[in-house]
Amino acid sequence: MTSIFSQDGKQTACTIIEAGPCIVTQVKTTETDGYNAIQLAYGDKNEKHTIAAEKNHFAKANTAAKKFVKEFRNYFTEKNLGDAITVDIFAEGEKVDVVGTTKGKGFQGVVKRHGFSGVGEQSHGQHDRQRAPGSIGNSSDASRVFKGMRMAGRMGNDRVKVKSLKILKVFPDKNYILVNGSVPGHNGAIVYIQK
């Protein structure tokens, strides 16, 4: 993430995404596969770590082995095997959705994970339970803990979609797009952009 200034001096938080070039490695149609989709591949992969099956699959599209492969359903623009999709499909001012995996936070308590407020005071017998969840249910009636009770556990590392991010700028030379705000994941993480 970084930020840019507009002409009148307003600072806007934004994220740079390298969007492509993505190579079309497979075209699925209703006749052959029962549904419409295209498969896109991005990022070069070391030849040494590529198995023969993958090599042949990419060879069909006449491209080197790629690291990330993703199928996009209902892609209605006509595309052929080996076509490259670049940032040209995006325009300034357009809104896009970005899907990614959030940063993993590890095992976290209820205050961080679910926004519980904790005990709220340090005195009156609260010796060492300032961030404890409190009661998790009733006694004899129910006699059990309800499903879905919010408790401590693994946090982050979830698939998240951020909707309607505005494209501030497109850089066709470098295949960068600049979107308003933040996107899920760490620096250099892989994300999917939907129009």
């Binding site: 970084t2 840019i4 740079i16 390298e18 700028k169 850089f171 470098k174 960068y176």
Partner: peptide, 14 residues
């Protein structure tokens, strides 16, 4: 610094 960040600012920031 990140090369992408540097590139973007070279283009946009005076």
């Amino acid at each position: 610094m990140n090369a992408a960040v540097q590139f973007v600012h070279e283009q946009l920031t005076g």
